[in-house]
Computed example of a mutant assay.
Amino acid sequence: MDGTDTPATDGTSRVAMSEAAIELLRRLRERHGPLMFHQSGGCCDGSAPMCYPEGEFRTGSSDVLLARLSVAGVPEPVGFWMSAEQFTRWRHTHLTVDAVPGRGSGFSLEAPEGVRFLIRSRLLTGEERARLGE
Results as ranks from 00 to 15, higher is better:
M1A: 13
M1T: 13
D2A: 10
D2W: 08
G3T: 12
P7N: 10
A8Y: 01
A8T: 00
A8K: 02
T9N: 10
D10H: 10
T12L: 09
R14Y: 06
S18G: 09
E19F: 10
A21M: 11
A21N: 07
A21C: 12
E23G: 14
L25G: 04
R26M: 08
R26P: 07
R26G: 06
R27V: 12
R27G: 12
R29H: 15
R31S: 13
R31H: 14
P34R: 08
L35E: 00
F37H: 00
F37D: 00
C43P: 06
C44F: 14
C44M: 10
C51D: 00
C51I: 01
C51R: 00
Y52T: 01
E54V: 04
E54R: 15
F57D: 02
F57H: 11
R58A: 12
T59R: 04
T59Q: 04
D63E: 14
V64P: 00
A67W: 02
R68S: 14
V71C: 06
G73L: 06
V74P: 02
P75V: 03
P75A: 13
P77V: 05
V78T: 08
G79L: 03
F80M: 05
S83C: 11
A84Y: 03
Q86A: 12
F87T: 01
T88I: 05
H92R: 10
T93K: 02
L95M: 14
T96Q: 08
V100A: 05
V100W: 12
R103T: 15
G104I: 02
G106Y: 14
G106H: 12
G106R: 15
F107R: 10
S108L: 07
L109Q: 00
L109N: 03
E110S: 04
A111L: 03
A111M: 13
P112I: 06
E113P: 00
G114V: 05
R116Q: 15
L118W: 05
L118T: 15
L124S: 03
L124N: 09
G126C: 09
A130W: 10
R131L: 09
L132N: 00
L132W: 00
L132D: 02
G133I: 09
G133P: 02
E134F: 15
